[in-house]
């Protein structure tokens, strides 16, 4: 049987293969880039729909504004957590930081259902079919946002690929929900909330399933 491997031999081989590398930018930097893209998409939607309808809705029903702020914060924090998880040695417990903004987002959306008045410039979706547009919007925007995050993580080394991919899902679903807030025609209601929850759950689930595989660290390969 083979003797204990000679580590020094391997170290020399790796040293011989050494080439300068471009360092991975810090997670905060990359989060900034992701935020810029989200802001650019928001700017396009605002350019198309205008800010006034959203501000009117928010003035009439502040819970909608809180839900929107919660969604934006969830998107940013989840994005930062995903980038952090891509660097070995960063605490995995950071994933819990997504919880407070997510609770604000979900809580404010839920509280909105208890209101006895309808927010200005909105209608109440009586059936899930009526709110189908929200589902399509969140899914359609989540796809490029998720793809972008996976691409931004291509040089990273996530030691927990499924958790990282789930965070990508949370970030892109929350990002899409934030964008939807700009042109959302439905008031908070159980049906609308259920459609949003379905869309967000789908995005997170698909990301965890597929993204986890894409991000899974490969078995070590030897130096070129």
């Amino acid at each position: 049987m083979a003797d204990a491997p000679n580590h020094q031999l391997l170290i020399h081989a790796l040293g011989a293969d050494l080439a300068p590398v471009r360092r991975l930018r810090p997670p905060l930097w990359r989060t900034f880039g992701w935020t810029l893209l989200l802001a650019a998409m928001a700017a396009l939607l605002v350019w198309h729909y205008g800010l006034t309808p959203m501000l009117t809705r928010w003035r009439g029903a502040p819970d909608l504004a809180w839900a929107g702020i919660g969604a934006v914060l969830t998107a940013l924090v989840a994005g930062w957590v995903a980038f952090s998880l891509g660097v070995p040695g960063r605490p995995v417990a950071r994933a819990w930081l997504v919880l407070p903004p997510a609770l604000l987002w979900i809580g404010a959306s839920g509280v909105g259902c208890l209101r006895s008045w309808v927010a200005p410039d909105t209608v109440v979706a009586a059936t899930m079919a009526e709110a189908r547009g929200c589902l399509e919007f969140i899914l359609a925007f989540s796809l490029p946002l998720s793809a972008l995050l996976v691409w931004l993580l291509r040089r990273a080394y996530p030691l927990r690929p499924v958790l990282t991919a789930a965070m990508i899902g949370v970030a892109s679903a929350a990002g899409s929900a934030s964008l939807l807030e700009i042109c959302h025609e439905f008031d908070a209601a159980a049906t609308d909330l259920a459609v949003h929850a379905l869309a967000v759950g789908l995005v997170i689930g698909v990301n965890a399933l597929c993204g986890g595989r894409l991000l899974r660290p490969r078995r070590p390969i030897a130096a070129r």
Partner: peptide, 17 residues
């Protein structure tokens, strides 16, 4: 494990800050 870790370190050395 030592050898596989060293090879991994080589491959992902750009992730070290």
């Amino acid at each position: 494990v030592v050898q596989e870790t060293l090879i991994t370190v080589h491959r992902v050395r750009h992730t070290y800050d």
